[in-house]
Computed example of a mutant assay.
Amino acid sequence: MTIRIGVQIQPQHADYRAIRRAVAEAEELGVDIAFNWDHFFPLYGEPDGQHFECWTMLGAWAEATSRIEIGALVTCNSYRNADLLADMARTVDHISDGRLILGIGAGWFERDYDEYGYDFGTPGTRLADLEQALARIEARWKKLNPAPTRDIPILIGGGGEKKTLRYTARHADIWHTFGDVEVLRRKSAILDEWCVTEGRPASAIQRSIGVGDSPDVSGEELVAAGAGLFTIGLTGPTYDFGLVKEWLAFRDAQN
Rank of each mutant, 00 (worst) to 15 (best):
G30H: 08
G30N: 03
G30F: 12
V31D: 06
V31F: 08
D32H: 04
D32V: 08
D32E: 01
I33T: 14
I33S: 06
I33P: 02
A34C: 13
A34W: 09
A34V: 15
A34T: 11
F35Q: 04
F35I: 03
N36G: 11
N36S: 13
N36Q: 05
N36D: 13
W37M: 13
W37S: 10
W37P: 00
D38A: 04
D38P: 05
D38Y: 06
D38F: 02
D38Q: 01
D38V: 04
H39R: 10
H39G: 04
H39C: 09
F40Y: 15
F40Q: 00
F40L: 01
F40G: 01
F41C: 02
F41E: 04
F41T: 06
F41G: 01
P42V: 09
P42I: 11
L43P: 07
L43Q: 13
L43R: 09
L43E: 12
L43A: 08
L43M: 15
L43C: 08
Y44T: 12
Y44D: 15
Y44A: 14
G45M: 10
G45S: 12
G45A: 08
G45F: 10
G45D: 07
E46W: 07
E46P: 14
P47Q: 09
P47K: 05
P47W: 13
D48Q: 12
D48F: 12
D48T: 15
D48E: 15
Q50I: 11
Q50F: 11
Q50M: 14
H51L: 08
F52H: 12
F52A: 10
F52Y: 14
F52K: 08
F52Q: 09
F52C: 04
E53V: 10
E53P: 05
E53C: 05
E53A: 06
E53F: 05
E53S: 08
C54H: 02
C54L: 05
W55E: 01
W55Y: 10
W55H: 02
T56M: 08
T56Q: 10
T56F: 05
T56P: 14
T56K: 00
M57T: 15
M57Q: 07
M57V: 11
M57R: 02
M57Y: 11
L58F: 03
L58W: 01
L58Q: 01
L58P: 05
G59N: 06
A60F: 11
A60C: 07
A60V: 14
A60E: 05
A60W: 14
W61I: 12
W61K: 00
W61F: 15
A62L: 08
A62H: 07
A62M: 04
A62E: 01
E63N: 12
E63T: 13
E63W: 12
E63Q: 13
E63S: 15
A64H: 13
A64V: 09
A64T: 08
A64P: 03
A64I: 09
A64M: 14
T65Y: 02
T65I: 01
T65D: 01
T65G: 00
S66I: 00
S66H: 05
S66A: 06
S66M: 00
R67E: 07
R67C: 01
R67T: 15
R67H: 13
I68P: 03
I68H: 02
I68R: 02
E69D: 11
